[in-house]
């Protein structure tokens, strides 16, 4: 595609510890937008202290290296919004599936997780120098064992098997369009689109904090991506990722 950034180069490797780590190590030699896809991750990472488990060659486990240029630290949540929306576009446009975002960046289909995102940035001062966008999209795996009862895959949702590399190509196209938008679209617009697709936006859902569980609706996010909520009695809340969980 003309002017494509994300996925202009795709490198396939059979096996690595984690595609995010691989990209970070090779960063200096990889052009902006390069995607590294691994058939197998031996130490795939989810959030900082959790593992990402994926059956060999059945899913998309890939990372993209980006140099966003003039992005300030306070805009970095835009990257997260843009990637989340790109994945929803892919599900909707290619497969007619309506996904939802579980704040901040898990992608759910029918209440089950189909895709996880792990973004790692390098900042100098207040500027994002480079960014590694990792994503694990479940494609052909149909058995997630007892450890992941809340996972799903494209195969489980659609009832057939897919060509993983072709799905990667389609997914990268969707991510690319959103990324190029991100560079020019006002934050407000991106934020509105992101929020419209967030589980619990303007709808009462059950959440749990240290103080116990309660029902509240999501009303927005702040600059840093923190969650703004409102209870039925009108009291508002602002939560960091470590302070709140959803009861699905």
């Amino acid at each position: 595609m003309l002017n494509q950034i994300i996925g202009r180069n795709v490198i396939y490797i059979s096996k690595t510890e984690s595609t995010n780590s691989f990209v970070k190590e090779q960063q200096g030699s990889l052009p902006n937008g390069t995607c590294v896809f691994a058939g197998e991750q031996t130490a795939g990472r989810g959030q900082q202290h959790t593992r990402w488990n994926s059956e060999k060659s059945k899913n998309i486990t890939a990372s993209v290296k980006l140099e966003p240029g003039k992005m300030e630290a306070e805009q970095q949540f835009k990257l997260n919004m843009s990637v989340s929306l790109g994945i929803l576009d892919y599900l909707q446009e290619q497969h007619g599936i309506q996904g939802r975002i579980k704040w901040p960046n898990d992608i759910l289909v029918n209440g089950r997780k189909i895709c996880g995102i792990l973004i790692e940035n390098t900042l100098s001062g207040s500027r994002v120098q480079s960014s590694v966008i990792g994503f694990g999209m479940n494609i052909n795996q149909t058995d997630f064992g007892d450890n992941l009862p809340n996972a799903t895959s494209l195969a489980l949702v659609c009832g057939r098997i897919f060509d993983v590399k072709e799905e990667l190509r389609l997914l990268l196209e969707c991510l690319d369009i959103r990324y190029r938008q991100l560079l020019v679209v006002p934050t407000k617009v991106l934020e509105e689109q992101y929020l419209r697709n967030v589980y619990g936006f303007d709808t009462l859902v059950e959440m749990r904090t240290e103080g116990g569980s309660f029902h509240a609706k999501i009303t927005g996010i702040d600059t840093w991506g923190r969650l703004k909520t409102e209870k039925p009695d009108g009291t508002s809340g602002l939560y960091d990722i470590k302070q709140v969980q959803f009861v699905l």
């Binding site: 973004i119 940035n121 390098t122 900042l123 991506g225």
Partner: peptide, 20 residues
């Protein structure tokens, strides 16, 4: 300059902070 001194996690985004 350029050495990573710490990491800051912001809503599941991990940021390595380099010294200036």
């Amino acid at each position: 300059k350029g050495d990573v001194v710490c990491m800051i996690e912001a809503m599941k985004l991990f940021n390595e902070i380099e010294s200036e």
